[in-house]
């Protein structure tokens, strides 16, 4: 079925085209005034003032999980460095002093310039020592050396910024089922 549409003939004001031009300008002016007066109704995000909401599952900057005594939970097995496709994790191991674990980590650097944020290191970690839930997504520096994040920066996170109901993020012995070790630490498994 073909639908015939009759075109409305222009009246003489429209045929002058001068007023039509100003009608088009009025639309532009309306948007300009809206940007001046009602800024928050615009679709544009005013970035530096309003930060985007990033969920906890977004793969952002890494953090190293800690035991209650403040040492990193990492046991220096090197699985994250093996799994990393970009080879951006550099770690050095040393024998642990306390005798409860075999090795402790001496140096744990992540080069965030080479890192592609795939999350394979988090998947590979057997003791849940590495997470990517800091919601810190902006990495801007003027030198390449500044992107290398050392261990103390990865460890310096505030527990208040993370969900309190997540027991794993607050409790120490990540993933282990060794009851003796848990007793030695004085902890209970929920």
């Amino acid at each position: 079925m073909v639908r015939q549409i009759k075109q409305k003939p222009m009246n003489w004001i429209e045929r002058l085209y001068i007023f039509e031009a100003f009608r088009g300008l009025w639309t532009t002016l309306k948007h300009a005034l809206r940007g001046l007066l009602r800024y928050e109704t615009l679709p544009t995000v005013p970035y530096p003032e309003i930060k985007p909401e990033i969920s906890r599952t977004y793969r952002a900057k890494h953090r190293l999980m800690l035991r209650p005594d403040g040492t990193p939970r990492c046991v220096a097995c090197g699985m994250c460095a093996t799994a990393c496709p970009a080879h951006c994790i550099f770690l050095e191991a040393a024998p642990a002093e306390d005798g409860r674990i075999e090795k402790r980590v001496l140096r744990f650097d992540i080069d965030h310039l080479v890192c592609v944020f795939c999350g394979l290191c988090v998947e590979a970690c057997p003791v849940d020592a590495l997470r990517m839930d800091t919601c810190d997504t902006s990495y801007v520096f003027r030198k390449r050396e500044d992107f290398v994040t050392p261990m103390y920066q990865l460890m310096s996170w505030d527990p208040k910024d993370y969900p309190q109901d997540d027991l794993q993020s607050q409790m120490a012995p990540g993933g282990t089922k060794n009851k003796q070790a848990l007793d030695a630490w004085g902890l209970k498994v929920n």
């Binding site: 310039l113 944020f117 795939c118 997504t137 801007v140 030198k143």
Partner: peptide
């Protein structure tokens, strides 16, 4: 200026 991230 360098921007890290894949993609940023």
């Amino acid at each position: 200026v360098y921007i890290g991230g894949c993609p940023p």
